[in-house]
């Protein structure tokens, strides 16, 4: 039990994610999360605006159930499986973040500077979250997959499009963290 409550190292997490990949294919489905964003649009009536969304969402119920499971997995972890929310960060990272205005980096999973409920009261606070979401939704659908679909499944399957997508993930991520963060925070 002690092991479960501690943070899991990469060499446990990586193989465990590969096991999830195996289970999905064993049960006849692809491993991916971001297609569900389109399914939500279809359920919400987006088919009235674009034929792109005129799909049979019921055929993707299994994936919605998978997502429901992910949420429940989050509930179980946060309620029962975490003895602490602290993240053991590189001290260099903590120092850097402090200079950017992020106090107590690593004391919780998420920085209050971005995710506190109080931030939802400010325009900048809301915009940061909303724009991040817009980029995630638009980008994954344009690229045809996210971390699970491209980085894990696609790279495992030696797909060139996935390698290009992952290089793109890093191009965008590096641009954000190295150049845009100092302007935003």
């Amino acid at each position: 039990m002690e092991f479960i409550l501690q943070p899991w190292p990469w060499y446990v997490a990586g193989p465990a994610i590969a096991f999830v990949l195996f289970l999905m294919f064993y049960y006849g489905r692809a491993f991916g999360v971001s297609t569900n964003l389109e399914t939500f649009c279809t359920i919400g009536g987006a088919g009235n605006f674009s034929d792109y969304f005129k799909t049979d969402w019921k055929a993707r119920k299994w994936s919605l159930v998978f997502v429901l499971g992910i949420i429940i997995g989050g509930v179980i972890s946060s309620q029962y499986l975490m003895s602490s929310n602290a993240i053991a960060l590189n001290p260099e990272t903590v120092k850097e973040l402090a200079a950017l205005g992020f106090a107590n980096a690593g004391s919780d999973y998420l920085p209050a500077e971005i995710f506190s409920v109080a931030n939802l009261g400010s325009l900048k606070g809301i915009l940061i979250l909303l724009v991040a979401g817009l980029c995630i939704g638009f980008g994954t659908r344009y690229a045809g997959g996210c971390t699970s679909g491209h980085a894990i499944t696609g790279l495992s399957n030696l797909q060139l499009p996935s390698l290009v997508a992952v290089i793109g993930f890093f191009a965008g991520g590096l641009l954000m963290v190295w150049f845009l963060f100092p302007l935003l925070f």
Partner: peptide, 19 residues
């Protein structure tokens, strides 16, 4: 894949979360 991936990367880094 490259442009879509880069746009996703911007959001991934800002929100610190993928889907």
């Amino acid at each position: 894949t490259f442009v879509g991936g880069s746009i996703f990367g911007l959001g991934w880094a800002l929100a610190g979360a993928c889907p």
